[in-house]
Computed example of a mutant assay.
Amino acid sequence: MRLLGFLVLLVLCISGKIRGEVSTQNWKEIEKINKKGPYIGIVVPNAFEMNPLLESSSFHADSKSPFFDFAGKRFRIGKLEKKRVIIVMSGLSMLNAGFATQLLVTLFKVKGVVHHGIAGNANPQLQIGDVTVPQFWAHTGLWNWQRFGHGAEDKLALEVNGDYTRKFGHLNFSNFNNHKKLVLNLLNSVWYQPEEVFPINSIPEVRQHAFWVPVDNKYFQVAKKLKNVKLEGCVNKTACLPRNPKVVRVKRGISSNVFVDNKAYRQFLSSKFNATAIDMESAAVALTCLQYQTPFIAIRALSDLAGDDSSSLSNEASLYASLASQNAVTVLIKFISLLPS
């Protein structure tokens, strides 16, 4: 009977893990971690962006609980510049970034979230290696696609119900036709849409909308002090940038599940949205923090001038990604050091 009872308990535990439930043991471990909090949460997309942080002399893993594994994520516990931090690698894309951030702010006692990594650049006034700190983020992958043959006077699908809007952006694909070849463009137009959000302090299932999500104002003011941070300008002795990279606070960054490697679309994003950093995760972190009312900021180093072919440095992400990643980490560490204890 004891053996049978043990087997039943084992099956229940296994089935609980399969369903993604938080076991009693996990809750005990989470509570133990939270007793040392609150923490600054750090969300980073990929290993090559995270490793320079973990290898930094400024980071010290917790001696008793260096990490906690849950739902496919590893939450690394420690101190950075003597501030308690929890670091989680989200993985590529908006879905992974949002999921990792939600776990972070739900399970742990987190007082703010800092996101860092590399990004494409839509601003030709900046160069590879520069580190940007945008004030606003938007998800530009949520579209309402207009039916072929319809024009400005025609309503979008479900627009009359209040589900969609023409307030944010408009991309007319025919503007990018090769008119010399008289190409008939069947793609017509798309209108960019705000996200539906459900803040934790609002009435459940009563939706609100958000397009431009601001970073935390106090964090953004702290970022003023980053402009003199020394950054790397060379990958090796033969691969150096034309000038030393710099830290710049900019107006806007945008995210979607798209790796932008197209000059025309990059220029459109710059002119339509006044965007600088283009990535695949930051807006998801921003939107999650907005709903949880958690202070947030993103630090993104530029790894390429997305899709431009006018310069030898136009699209060198494969060459300069490591340099950009290191610069992002350098700025992150300085930012954390400037936060009050």
Score class of each variant (00 low, 15 high):
121 N>S: 08
73 K>H: 11
202 S>W: 01
26 N>P: 01
125 Q>W: 00
243 R>S: 11
131 V>K: 02
179 H>I: 12
182 L>K: 15
88 V>E: 07
224 K>A: 05
297 I>Q: 03
272 K>Y: 02
262 N>A: 02
64 K>D: 14
131 V>H: 02
188 N>V: 09
130 D>G: 01
53 L>T: 14
328 A>M: 10
165 T>I: 10
326 Q>G: 10
226 L>V: 07
280 M>N: 12
106 T>N: 13
255 S>W: 02
320 Y>T: 15
316 E>K: 12
297 I>R: 07
324 A>I: 04
55 E>W: 01
281 E>T: 03
112 G>Y: 07
64 K>P: 02
1 M>W: 05
114 V>R: 04
64 K>Q: 13
140 T>E: 06
14 I>E: 15
298 A>Q: 04
223 A>P: 10
323 L>K: 08
256 S>L: 06
62 D>G: 06
66 P>L: 01
318 S>W: 14
152 A>I: 05
99 F>R: 13
226 L>I: 08
109 K>Y: 05
34 N>Q: 08
47 A>D: 14
302 L>P: 13
52 P>H: 09
196 E>M: 12
129 G>R: 03
243 R>Y: 03
157 A>Y: 13
132 T>D: 06
58 S>V: 04
244 N>S: 10
68 F>H: 08
57 S>N: 13
170 H>S: 11
24 T>N: 10
137 W>D: 08
167 K>R: 14
222 V>F: 08
45 P>R: 04
263 K>Y: 07
219 Y>C: 04
179 H>W: 07
50 M>I: 03
145 W>R: 11
32 K>V: 01
326 Q>R: 14
247 V>P: 02
273 F>D: 15
180 K>T: 15
21 E>G: 07
215 V>T: 15
